[in-house]
Simulated assay, not measured.
Amino acid sequence: MDLADIPRDLRLDSPDAVLAAVREVARGPLAQVVEAIDREGYYPRAELQRLGALGAMSAHLNAPAGRGDFALALRAMAEVSQVCGATGFMMWCQAVCGLYMQASGNPALMGEALMAHASGATLGGTAMSNPMKNYAQIEGLLLKAVPVTGGYRVSGTLPWVSNLGPGHACGALAGVVDEHGEVVREVMFLLRCDAEGVEMRECPSFSGMEGTGTYGLRLKDLFIGTDEIMADPAKPFIARIRGAFVLLQCGMAVGVTQGAIDSMWAVEDQLGHVNQFLEDRPAELQAELDALTERVMKLAETPFDPSADFFIDVLDARAHGAELSLRAAQSALLHQGARGYLMSSEVQRRVRESHFVAIVTPAIKHLRKEIARLSAEALPA
């Protein structure tokens, strides 16, 4: 599907029109396959491409690929996550991969390649979980790059990377080693799943994320040339995009939380007389979510603010979103009672989705570690 398939009055005329079209997809075709995504591992390629054609995963990019509107990108992700957290997560994967491509400044990754990605014609993700943990001193780099004529040879194994498949690609990072095997800097690049030297391995079944196109990647002497390079060295590039990278994840948290609140209201007429004795009631959670959403939208006005204070605020909002989604999903289960304990229940699925919001990189513990580190660095000597 491409832009020609989208009615002209719903293309990119206004944010409200985009959101209305995204909502229609989320509550229509996507809602019809959400059980298959969750329970059977169905990868919603067609649904993702419909969302891509509407501009739902490129709104944050600059013209001509998008609007440069981070708030719209977050709201679109929240609309989808409200119905299916797994698909909302894949929207984030697609969105940040596009962010890498545009921010790279590499002509080979921009132009037609970026337009194809922005429209959903091509799909991809991000293999940056390990590098983000490395920068936080949680684990070592798993990919190593050896300089060769015209580029690098990259080898190593990543245990899981999402929104992948045949013809897909993802942003990745490797440590560049010297003749002694020591990492001297990092290089970031576009990793193409179909490239020679890349092996995709099936992962064990994932709770709440079975249909996310998640694979283990094994790289053996994968050649990376200038057409694939996003940043070399990578650290300044990461410092420039880190706030936007984390901020975009807030769309997942907002959507999953809103879906949980909606499930509470759905049983209020029947069970409100007894649910009133529960903590975390829907009106209270809604007020907290609305305040968080307003805060996130304010941050979305300056997503590339390089200051440490801004990044701390983004990390804190992301942590708040994860914690709120956990509370809301658990409360929704208690509000629904036995019916929410059925495996077919959207509440049961959302509990698992909220767990993913809390542990996907950066996980709550990672967020708190970074907030503590950055806060300590900002203190006077």
Rank of each mutant, 00 (worst) to 15 (best):
M209V: 01
M200V: 07
A266I: 06
V267N: 14
A260W: 14
E279T: 12
G175E: 01
M252G: 09
E202R: 13
D290T: 08
K220M: 10
L222Q: 08
A244N: 03
M188D: 05
P282N: 08
G167K: 06
V161R: 03
T257R: 07
A169K: 01
L278Q: 13
G197I: 11
L217W: 05
G243M: 04
D178I: 03
L190H: 07
F277M: 12
L278I: 13
L164C: 03
M209W: 02
C203A: 14
L292E: 05
E196C: 02
I238P: 00
V256H: 03
V183S: 00
A195V: 05
Y215I: 00
Y215M: 05
H273D: 14
L285Q: 14
G272D: 06
A283T: 09
E196F: 01
N275T: 07
G243F: 08
M252Q: 12
A239Y: 06
S162M: 05
R295S: 09
M209K: 01
L278P: 02
P282K: 04
V254M: 13
A253N: 14
N275W: 06
V198K: 13
C250L: 12
L285G: 04
A174E: 02
A244M: 10
W160N: 12
T157I: 07
E179A: 10
H180E: 11
I224A: 03
E186T: 15
G208T: 03
V274R: 11
G213L: 08
R240H: 15
G255Q: 07
F206N: 08
A231Y: 13
M264D: 05
G213R: 06
G216I: 04
T212K: 07
F237L: 07
T214M: 12
Q270M: 13
N163F: 04
R295I: 00
L289W: 02
A231K: 06
M188A: 14
G211W: 02
L173E: 12
N275K: 04
I261Q: 07
V246Y: 04
V198Q: 14
S207A: 11
V256P: 01
V184W: 02
G208V: 01
E210L: 14
E196Y: 02
R240L: 09
P166M: 05
L217F: 11
L247D: 13
D269P: 02
A266N: 12
G211E: 04
L285K: 08
G197R: 10
L285S: 06
V254F: 09
S263E: 11
E202D: 14
A174C: 05
L248V: 05
V187P: 01
P204L: 11
T214G: 13
E284Y: 03
N275Q: 07
D178Q: 06
L292H: 09
F277Y: 15
P166R: 13
G171Y: 04
T157V: 11
L173D: 10
M252K: 09
E186Q: 11
E268V: 08
G225V: 00
H180C: 03
Q276A: 12
Q270R: 13
V296K: 09
G175K: 02
D194E: 14
V198M: 11
